[in-house]
Structure formats: structure tokens, C-alpha cells
């Protein structure tokens, strides 16, 4: 069963107890993510409710740059995929180097994302699209900004994991943590799909 229960954790063969132990943090972290989902859910609802609260300020047509959004989407999707490769490397190869390499690739893709996002934000500000401008813009900044903040935290987390790999190697605890980080990283992509569909594409349709 170990193969399917946890993507990317292969403690079952070597250490059944450690595998069982990782169940609790994994489940706990899922619960945490679901709690986080409610936060995003409410911000989505707020955004939808406030779509027309523009107070004659700029709206989606003036603010959004679909090319950049498409690039950000690809980056996140690609990084989700590369994180999956890191998980598989951890599970099947049991060596630090491939895991670390995939993590670094993920981090590079991941770091480009907020880079582009910051550029978008700067453009929005140039268009007068600051959050203080209208109820709509406040909602937009809160939703997209919170996602960006999550990505930034994820990047720090990847850096910490690289350090942990260097200091502690692929210990059971490190593996479990990598697993949690994986859940987090994939989850952020799910939220992004929501933002892409509702904010960007929905706004421009």
C-alpha cells in the first residue's frame, strides 16, 4: 500500500513504523490546507461580490496582461511537475543529489513566478490600480497578493529543505517534510487555477 498512500514517500519498505508515523503529519497538513482553502474561498467570494465596485477606477481590461498571466500559469504548472519529479526521486532513488537538483529546478521556476507577478503589480500601480483606489482593487490585491505571499513562503520553505538535506540528509523526518512541502506546492497550483479562471479569464471573457 505504501506506494499509493503517499506520493513520493517510500518508508514502507525500509521502516514501517516511520511510514505509519508520517501518516499523522500528512493528514494534519491536509487539514491545515483545507483551513487555508476556506481563507481563499472567502476571498474569492469577496472578489466576485466586489467585481462591480470599481468606483470609476480601472478594471480587468485596463489592468490585466494575459501574456504575463499565461507565462505565470505555465511556470506554476511546470514547477508542480518538477516537484513531482523531486518526490519520485526521493521515493525511488533514495539519493540526495537528484532530489536536491529537482528542488532547485522547482525553486527557479517558482521564483520566476513572483518575479513576473511583481512586474504585473508594478504595471497595475502605473495604471492607477493601487488597492486603495477601489473596493474592487482591494479585493483583487488581497486575493492575488495572498497567493503570491504563499508562493514566497513556499520558496523559503524549499530553501530550508535544501539546507536540511545538506545538514541532515534524507532522514525520515526530512522525507516527511518534503512530502508536506509537496502538498503545499501542488495546492498553490490548485488555487492558481481558481485565480486564473475567476479573476483573469473570467474578468476578460
Amino acid at each position: 500500500m505504501s506506494g499509493t498512500a503517499h506520493p513520493g514517500l517510500n518508508l514502507g519498505a525500509s521502516d514501517a513504523r516511520a511510514h505509519e508515523r508520517s501518516e499523522t503529519p500528512v493528514f494534519g497538513f491536509w487539514v491545515f490546507l483545507m483551513s487555508d482553502l476556506i481563507i481563499f474561498g472567502i476571498l474569492f467570494a469577496h472578489y466576485i461580490v466586489m467585481t462591480d465596485a470599481r468606483a470609476f477606477g480601472p478594471g480587468p481590461a485596463q489592468l490585466f496582461d494575459l501574456k504575463s498571466v499565461a507565462a505565470q500559469t505555465s511556470l506554476l504548472l511546470a514547477s508542480s511537475y518538477t516537484y513531482g519529479m523531486a518526490s519520485l526521486a526521493m521515493k525511488h532513488r533514495e539519493r540526495i543529489r537528484p532530489v536536491a537538483l529537482w528542488l532547485i529546478v522547482t525553486a527557479i521556476l517558482g521564483a520566476t513566478f513572483p518575479g513576473l507577478e511583481l512586474r504585473d503589480f508594478a504595471n497595475m500601480i502605473a495604471e492607477g490600480g493601487v488597492p486603495q483606489r477601489s473596493g474592487y482593487l482591494s479585493a483583487l490585491w488581497a486575493l492575488v497578493g495572498l497567493h503570491g505571499l504563499h508562493v514566497a513562503v513556499g520558496l523559503v520553505w524549499i530553501a530550508v529543505m535544501l539546507a536540511l538535506l545538506a545538514v541532515r540528509g534524507l532522514s525520515n523526518r526530512t522525507k516527511t517534510r518534503l512530502l508536506l512541502l509537496g502538498l503545499y506546492w501542488h495546492f498553490l497550483d490548485l488555487i492558481w487555477i481558481g485565480i486564473l479562471s475567476i479573476v483573469y479569464l473570467g474578468g476578460l471573457a
Binding site: H46, V49, M50, A53, R54, A55, G57, P131, Q132, R133, S134, G135, Y136, L137, S138, A139, W141, A142
Partner: peptide, 21 residues
């Protein structure tokens, strides 16, 4: 906190804020 400290308009009664929310 964002409304009060950074001047956002979530719940204000001007510029499209919505206190009902």
C-alpha cells in the same frame, strides 16, 4: 487591518467599499 492601516477599501463607505460584507 488592511483597511485601517494601509487604507484599503474592503468595508469603508467610500470608493466601493462594502461594510455589509
Amino acid at each position: 487591518a488592511l483597511d485601517r492601516t494601509l487604507g484599503f477599501h474592503f468595508f469603508t463607505n467610500d470608493l466601493g467599499g462594502n461594510m455589509m460584507q
